[in-house]
Structures are given as structure tokens and as C-alpha cells.
Design a protein around this nucleic acid. Structure first.
Lengths: 231, 231
DNA sequence: TTGAAAAATTAAATTTCGGTCAAAAACCTC
DNA sequence: GAGGTTTTTGACCGAAATTTAATTTTTCAA
């Protein structure tokens, strides 16, 4: 039995592919089924409904997203500030290479916002609230952010980031810039003007601003050796 | 004939109200019609389809959004940096008071991104591409940003913002932070920890970071008198 | 004033999915 | 290889978007 991938995975991958090319709305469950080489009914055997399927995809997205953070942390010899900059670039690549995944993460933030707003919470279909996918996401969605916050703390300890900064808020500000960067990146390309702001300048500009925002006493260009475990 | 509002407006307001309380998806065209006191069919007389209705709402959103920018510029005696900070606060209020509008603006960025990505462009329903609403938005969506960029330029001229910054990218970075701020604000409230990051601290933290990021030679706390017209 | 063309409005018909379900097929396991 | 369990199917249902044809209202020139 070669390439006997399990069905869930096949469906999920079909969905990811179609959501990428046609978008969530325009993709019919029947399309997903056809792409996965199964019947429509079967997709409902593996996923409760379309939204559930999307949330399942979102979970994978968060998993991979977290990997990006871990990968940055794994690299040795980087100061906290280096890590943050590295993260920005890595996330940007991740978003370009996995649009749907990145988008699904940002979409989940909207859902979460509704969920935490008492006046909106019941506008979410109970079907979603109860879904295992959603519950799991509630537990794990914050994991990447935790790593990000740790990077800032790290930077404060090693002196590459100003000590007066509050790690949580600071990280969220960076995370905000990443989200906004992805939202704005495309639309900007086509600006008038002679000043050609291509993707590269765009990214460099953001990075520069982030550095200036965070920079502490240590020169980020001189890698800081982090001593021992900080935890 | 009192309160003889024209129908388009009535429909649009009904839609805005329902999209706010139940969300775009969950709002049926019939609901909109009922709320507007007309028959379902008539909404299709005034708007080609549901998406078209949403784009019409988006246009209003951009109009009001632009007003926020203008209002900030209108105030006298503010340095460029002051303006940017003021803008952040004003946009934040706008977003809170007009969730649907703010969201529709951010949603439009997604549409725009697709539109500018050759590989995705045709995943947009032609019906939308052709719609007057969309065409108009293509022309005007950049207006608020133009004003924002002008604020940065202003700040560079009056010394409140570092001269080495590139106005376009710098403004988009701020704009990014605003978008991210709104996406992340809600979900954060419920964090564990003893550190209570409430909305206010949250906003203050962002503002502080923005100031640090932009600050030039002039003390922003001492209002700078801007001499004459700079244009 | 009127009546015919244009505009506004409605209600019903149509279409397009998401979602359900009963039954068939495949797969055990004893 | 009979009985049970799991997987899979495809026809079917209903909700909601969109279309259409028919009806009412408005407009305005003769």
C-alpha cells in the first residue's frame, strides 16, 4: 500500500489547494470532494461541515506557524533582536508560501475577537463553538505568541532590546506589523509614483523600523552570546 | 414628507446594522429587506447582489475613514508626530464605534491583494470586478493613506519625526500596527497572567512604541508651531 | 386631466450550494 | 462465511441567493 495517506489529510490538502486558488467562498464542498477523489458525502464523514474543515486547516496552520517560531529560536548565536528580525522575515516567507494558512490564522483572530466579545459571542454558530477544532484552537492559538514574547524577553536580558519595553505589548506590536505587512504588501505594488516600492524595499523598511523601535544598548550587528539557560 | 431618506441609504443602514449584530454571512438578504421595510426583490434593484451591497458599505466606510484623517489634520498646532499619535487614537475609536466599517476596509485590502495578484485575479467573480462600487474603490481607497503619508512628511519637515525615514513605508508600518491592533485587541483581553493588559494599557503601549519608532530631534511634548503652508 | 412610458416594488420561480441520510460496499473477526 | 462494524456513496432536502415576470406607482407631455 504505497502513498496510502489517510483521508483526512487528503481532504485537507485538497481544501487548502482549492481555497488557495479559488478562495473559501467560491470553493464548493463538492469541489473539495472531487479534488480529493471521493464523494461529497464522505467529506462530511471526516469533517462536520465546511467551517469545521476550515478550522481543521487553521489548526494545521497554527502548527506550522509555531514551527516557524521554533525554528528561529533553534538557531544559536542570535540576540533577541536578531531573533525578532529573523522572525519577521521567516513569517513573511511563510505567509507568501502558505497564503491560506496565514490567512486562516488571521481569520481565526476575528473569530476569537467575536468569541471574547460578550455582545457578539452568540453570533457565532453554536456548531462552531462546540467543534473540537475550535476548542483545540482556543487552547493552542496563543503558543506562537508565547514564543514571540519570549524572544523579546530574551532581547531585554541580552541587552539587544531596550529594557523599558513590556514584552507582551511589544511582541503584539511586532505581530501587528506582520499582519499589516501581509495585508498591505500586495495592494501597494501597483502604486503610482516614480519611487518603486518593491517587496524587498518594503520588507527592509519594516525591518529597519522594527530595529529602531526595539534597539537597546547592544549593537545588534555584534552577535551576543547568550549564556546558559535563561529559564 | 419628513425623514424621506432615499432607499439606498435605508438599505445600506439596515445592512450595516445587521452585519454588525449578526455578521455578514449570517445576515440574509431577506433580513436586510425586512429591516429596511421593503421587499427582498427591491434590494436587488438597488444593489446587484450581496457582495455589491457590502462593497457599497465599504465605500461609505472609506469615506468616513478619510474623514477621520482629515479631522486630525484639521486640528492646528500639532506636529507631524502629534498627528500620527492622534490618528492612532482616532482610528482606534473609529474602529470601536464602527466595527463593520473598519472591518470592511480591511476586507477590501484582501480583495485588492487578490486583484493585484495576476495568479489570483480571476478568482474574483467578474460580477465584482465590473461593479461600479469596486471600480470606485479602486480609485479612492488610497486617499486616506495619502493623508497619512503626508502626516509623516509633515513630521519630518517640522523635526518631530526622524528625517531618514521614508514617509510611505513608515506610514504603512503605522497603518499595519493599527490593523493588527484591532485584530489582536479583543483576543488579548482574556489572557491569563496577573499582568492585566486592558484596552487602555494596550493602546498606550502601542502609542509609546510608535513614538519611539518615529521620534526625531524635536520634543513631541512641546507642540511645534508649523509655519505657513508646507505645500 | 389623462394615459402611456418609465421607475419602483413585489411575489413567486429558479438556482445553487451546504448538509443529511439510507443504503451499498468494504472490511474485519470469530 | 455470517454477522457486525466502518467507510463510502449518491440521491435528496432545505435554506438562502438571485432572477424574472408581473403589478403598482410615479412622471410628465399633450
Amino acid at each position: 500500500m504505497p502513498s496510502e495517506k489517510n483521508k483526512e489529510k487528503v481532504i485537507l490538502e485538497a481544501a487548502a489547494s482549492l481555497f488557495t486558488s479559488k478562495g473559501y467562498q467560491a470553493t464548493r464542498m463538492e469541489d473539495v470532494a472531487k479534488e480529493a477523489g471521493i464523494s461529497k458525502g464522505l467529506t462530511y464523514f471526516y469533517f462536520k461541515n465546511k467551517e469545521d474543515l476550515y478550522l481543521a486547516l487553521t489548526r494545521r496552520a497554527f502548527d506550522q506557524f509555531k514551527e516557524v517560531f521554533k525554528e528561529v529560536i533553534r538557531k544559536k548565536g542570535q540576540s533577541g533582536l536578531d531573533q525578532v528580525c529573523d522572525l519577521f522575515t521567516s513569517v513573511s516567507s511563510f505567509a507568501k508560501a502558505n497564503q491560506v494558512y496565514f490567512d486562516s490564522i488571521v481569520d481565526f483572530l476575528d473569530l476569537l475577537k467575536k468569541y471574547n466579545d460578550p455582545s457578539k459571542r452568540d453570533s457565532i454558530h453554536p456548531r462552531i463553538l462546540e467543534s473540537e477544532q475550535f476548542q483545540k484552537l482556543l487552547e493552542t492559538h496563543h503558543d506562537p505568541a508565547k514564543l514571540g514574547i519570549r524572544m523579546i524577553s530574551q532581547g531585554i536580558k541580552d541587552g539587544s532590546i531596550r529594557p523599558e519595553l513590556q514584552p507582551e505589548i511589544t511582541f503584539y506590536a511586532i505581530w501587528s506589523m506582520m499582519i499589516g505587512y501581509e495585508k498591505l504588501r500586495g495592494p501597494i505594488g501597483y502604486e503610482e509614483k516614480e519611487i518603486k516600492i518593491n517587496d524587498e524595499n518594503w520588507e527592509k523598511g519594516y525591518l529597519k523600523l522594527i530595529k529602531d523601535m526595539l534597539k537597546g544598548t547592544v549593537q545588534a550587528s555584534k552577535p551576543v552570546t547568550v549564556q546558559g539557560s535563561l529559564f
